[in-house]
Design a binder for these strands. Sequence first.
DNA 1: CTGGTTGCAAAATTTTTGCACTGGT
DNA 2: ACCAGTGCAAAAATTTTGCAACCAG
Lengths: 133, 133
Amino acid sequence: MYDRILRDKELKVTPQRIFILEEIRKMGHAGIEDLHERVKEVYSSVSLATIYKNIHILVEENILREVPIHGRKPVYEINIGDHVHLCCTKCGEVSDIMDIDTAPMLKEAERQSGHKYERIAVMLQGVCKNCSN
Amino acid sequence: MYDRILRDKELKVTPQRIFILEEIRKMGHAGIEDLHERVKEVYSSVSLATIYKNIHILVEENILREVPIHGRKPVYEINIGDHVHLCCTKCGEVSDIMDIDTAPMLKEAERQSGHKYERIAVMLQGVCKNCSN
DNA sequence: CTGGTTGCAAAATTTTTGCACTGGT
DNA sequence: ACCAGTGCAAAAATTTTGCAACCAG
């Protein structure tokens, strides 16, 4: 799966890399430190430096996307294009909403500002369904 | 102006604080380091620690708002409520669009997720009007 | 083989903390 | 006069870098 994506970007397919990507996919959204913990469970020798280096490269190549969050360190996700993010102010869980159309807002913003859009990030913060019970 | 806001939050009105707020208002959006440079020009003894401490308190009290940005450190602005942000991928300039209504998207997101909204952050990245010339 | 990748340690950067002192109320 | 706020220095936390060894292509 990810070996193909890596090869297409002319990145070497190392077990660490594959595992990092697999783990982020499983987690949905991962912070650097969490990710390191998870990867270490299997590749116990993996260094934080390797995590950082890979995150940078993978974000650079648009395989991952950085999701900045108000008041915390960013998390990373597999890049599946623009979509709306939710972040629970209680449990901290980050999740996605895939089927909201941001295009109308985008068009309007472009019209008003003359800014040429490349990417949009929408982050909704509040208490998630689980935590409000 | 800001002395009133500070007093209302039971924060002491120090010249450093007033100046920090004035400066952020003037700049529109300011990073920690930039802000420190600016403040130092007038209060040359002001320490970075003081900037950090104040930014934290002022964000906590909702006088300032942190604006997280993909791939960089956050900037801070006077909190004027939710609005759309633009960030130029060329010059880095951050600016506001005040009159885009995010409510429809918000409603839809709440409906889909059951998430109870508290705040929304919309960040549009791309080349700004100036830089595209 | 060869160059990209890894792991380790060290360095650099960024942020926080402790404490004496100052200044706002 | 009291205690929040400041400034400085030191500590802690985070991220980057250099380099030898390693391994995917």
